[in-house]
Computed example of a mutant assay.
Amino acid sequence: MNFKRFGRPAAIAFVAVIALSSCAANEGDTASTGDGAESTLTGTLNAGGASSQGAAQEAWAAAFQIANPDVTINYDPSGSGAGREAFIAGGSGFAGSDSYLSEEELAGEFGACAPDTLAVDLPVYISPIAVIFNVEGVDELNLDADTLASIFNGTITNWNDAAIVALNPDATLPDLAIAAVHRSDDSGTTENFTDYLAQASTTWGEEASDTFPFGGEGAQGTSGVVSAVTNGVGTIGYADASQVNDLSTVALKVGDEFVAYTPEAAAEVVAGSPLVEGRAADDLALDLNRQTTNPEEYPLVLVSYAIVCNEYADAEQGELVNAYVTYMASEAGQAVAEESAGIAPLSAELSENVASILATVK
């Protein structure tokens, strides 16, 4: 990814951020080794949003609070849409979101931010979205984008449909109705899932959306979808890969091969994706390449963001957000999330770019 939108001011900011990044890394080490480094941070930071970040946020908050014993971190995995709404209304210090701020949201005001300032999208979490299924007697399943789209828009309704059979000649597919499960809440995971189907298939017929556009069975949050697929019959759904447990997952057709999700393949597609055009210079929203034909890349991926003010109305809140999100995006923070949630760590370049922006947040 080319990050040349920053000129000399950002280079200066990056020099300043080296100390912050080092501090954040030390915090992670302190949390794990009990070295006892002193922290002067105090206060409570309330945030919420993407349920995909749930496991990572638990680990991040625990490590950060050990290193900063006078700080309390509260993260509510209420869903990306609810998280953005709360942040926009001024009810939280930052939002976790699997989709970046829309142009309409950017045109409005942000309750926690200083007057006449903006919020920005900073990547902190990269993960594959797994297509999960529960069909007795079927442990492996290959699907292309057109067939997957047709399942979720209701065009394909049975597991022994000819299109599925053609992609899985060695599987014994039952004469059984498909129960497709989607998120019932406004969800960045849904936005990423529908964005993949809109770009990679010819059969979806809708634009990307946080709200699932068709019928079927709805479930609240990532955990709700996983539970519905686990406990149902002939079920299929989509969920952040960190929470799929022992469910079977689909290999997606990429080019001429079928590709199973891995953190490494998710990171590869992110590395090859440009920034969204027309955004502010300190906004790192990514335009993910869903149409890749490179089998080293898994295109059904989400980048989850920390949405923060570039200047806070409450300077103490800004200090807390700066320190915590800097830690989340640091090498130490990414290692904690990789261990706890199986994420693909941010590349060194992307981590540095996030840090250079956070150095200017106040």
Rank of each mutant, 00 (worst) to 15 (best):
S32N: 12
T211W: 01
G188S: 05
E296D: 15
A219L: 06
A50Q: 09
G83Q: 08
A13G: 11
A114H: 02
E105V: 02
G278R: 05
S248N: 15
A267D: 14
A62N: 10
E104R: 13
S97I: 01
A280Q: 08
P123A: 06
N289S: 12
S187W: 02
E27Q: 10
P169Y: 03
N231T: 02
D170P: 04
A208W: 03
F193V: 04
S347R: 09
A260L: 10
E58N: 13
T155W: 02
S304C: 10
S39T: 09
P174Y: 03
E268K: 15
A335Q: 11
D161Y: 07
A86Y: 07
E38C: 04
E264V: 01
T155V: 02
F3L: 15
S347I: 09
I129R: 12
Y261E: 08
G342E: 01
L122I: 00
C23N: 14
S242W: 04
F14T: 03
V325W: 04
P69I: 03
G216N: 08
W204E: 05
E58Q: 13
L173A: 10
T155S: 15
A145P: 12
A344G: 10
D287K: 13
D283N: 15
G272Y: 04
F94L: 10
G205M: 06
E277H: 00
A329W: 02
T190Y: 02
S340K: 12
Q220E: 13
S356V: 01
A329E: 07
T202M: 11
N294W: 00
A241G: 09
T360L: 10
N353I: 02
L286K: 09
N68G: 11
L101Y: 01
D70K: 12
N68D: 08
E136Q: 14
D170W: 00
G216P: 04
G90D: 04
A112I: 01
A179G: 02
E109M: 07
A13R: 13
D287E: 14
F152T: 03
L118T: 06
Y125G: 03
V233T: 13
C113P: 05
T360I: 01
T155Q: 14
A280R: 05
D175K: 08
V120E: 12
G43T: 01
T189Q: 08
I164V: 05
N2P: 07
R183H: 15
S273V: 00
S102K: 05
W204F: 15
D246Q: 14
V321G: 07
G83C: 10
A219C: 03
A119D: 07
Q243M: 11
S51P: 08
A329N: 08
S78P: 13
T190A: 11
P77N: 05
P213V: 00
D240C: 13
A337Y: 07
A25S: 06
N245A: 11
V321S: 06
W204S: 07
D98F: 10
G43Q: 10
T147L: 10
G111P: 01
V303Y: 07
E85D: 15
P115F: 04
P169N: 07
L286F: 08
F193E: 03
T249P: 09
V269L: 06
E297G: 05
N353Q: 15
D170L: 06
L300S: 11
Y327I: 02
A337C: 11
T155N: 12
N142G: 13
T117P: 11
L122K: 00
A179L: 03
I151Q: 14
L122Y: 00
A162F: 01
F3Y: 15
P77V: 01
